[in-house]
């Protein structure tokens, strides 16, 4: 009985380790091809457009409403202790250190990450990836590297846009609707936000970018058979990316605090 249990646990642990190793090797191969020419700049621009430019509308919407909700809730709390003047810094720090990078990453995962996993998955099941391999061309170089590099560029930029729009969303609620003075909102922010806050936010966005694209590309690249396989891969990519964003956010947050 005990032996059977130990065998099952061991075999489960080995399979998990093997899968993790496989994923890690996939990441290493992708990183290797980033630095080995020929570089595919046109494909990179295409991916920046797909992951970045096409996510702008949703980022602007999400960012502004996040700032607005944040301002409403924080104002309500601050009023109780008579510190309404701290609304600006509270909204800005929450956005820059936490909510900007995390929520923009979750938004991009939902919009672009799922689409990328599905696109690569469909290329796998329709033998387009095999066709590249058969032509002696690396599918990693053509399909994965441009997406990864685009993510490294786009995630911090979108997080920054999310922060700025969120701060103006908070401004709209705090100043225009709740009657706080514009000077107080911004001047207090200037006193409390330091460069380190912005750096931490950018590090987080960068980490999330690599994580999301790694998971989504891996899941698509090694999708199962048929429509069901692609659907499963896409779901797994989004769920795993979202969980990892939050877990790594905590780890990075604890590290930088």
């Amino acid at each position: 009985m005990i032996e059977k249990f130990l065998r099952a646990t061991g075999s489960w642990a080995i399979s998990i380790l093997r899968r993790m190793g496989h994923m890690f090797l996939f990441l290493l191969r992708s990183i290797y091809y980033i630095f080995v020419p020929p570089f595919k700049f046109r494909l990179l621009l295409r991916e920046i457009r797909f992951i970045g430019t096409k996510s702008m509308t949703v980022i602007l919407l999400m960012g502004s409403f996040t700032g607005m909700v944040l301002a409403l809730q924080i104002f309500y709390t601050l009023r109780k202790v008579g510190s309404e003047a701290m609304l600006g810094p509270a909204v800005a720090i929450s956005l820059i250190r936490e909510l900007g990078p995390v929520l923009s990453a979750l938004t991009i995962t939902g919009r672009a990450g799922s689409a990328l996993a599905a696109e690569i998955g469909i290329m796998r099941i329709s033998e387009q990836i095999d066709a590249l391999t058969a032509m002696a061309l690396s599918p990693i170089r053509y399909l994965i590297v441009p997406k990864m590099v685009a993510a490294v560029i786009v995630f911090p930029l979108l997080a920054a846009i999310y922060d700025v729009i969120g701060i103006f969303g908070g401004y709209f609620v705090g100043v225009k609707l709740l009657g706080l003075s514009a000077g107080t909102y911004f001047s207090q922010m200037k006193h409390f936000i330091v460069m380190e806050d912005i750096t931490i936010g950018m590090y987080k966005a960068l980490t999330f970018g690599v994580l999301v694209l790694w998971i989504c590309c891996y899941k698509g690249f090694y999708t199962g058979y048929g429509a069901e396989g692609v659907s499963k891969a896409t779901t797994e990519a989004v769920v795993m990316s979202s969980v990892l964003i939050l877990v790594s956010d905590y780890v990075l947050g604890a590290f930088f605090i």
Binding site: E127, A134, M135
Partner: peptide, 19 residues
């Protein structure tokens, strides 16, 4: 292996055209 693959052309079942 790529050097050998360069000798081949492959017509896949569904065509495998880049869509």
């Amino acid at each position: 292996l790529d050097r050998i693959r360069e000798k081949f052309g492959v017509v896949f079942q569904g065509g495998a055209l880049f869509d």
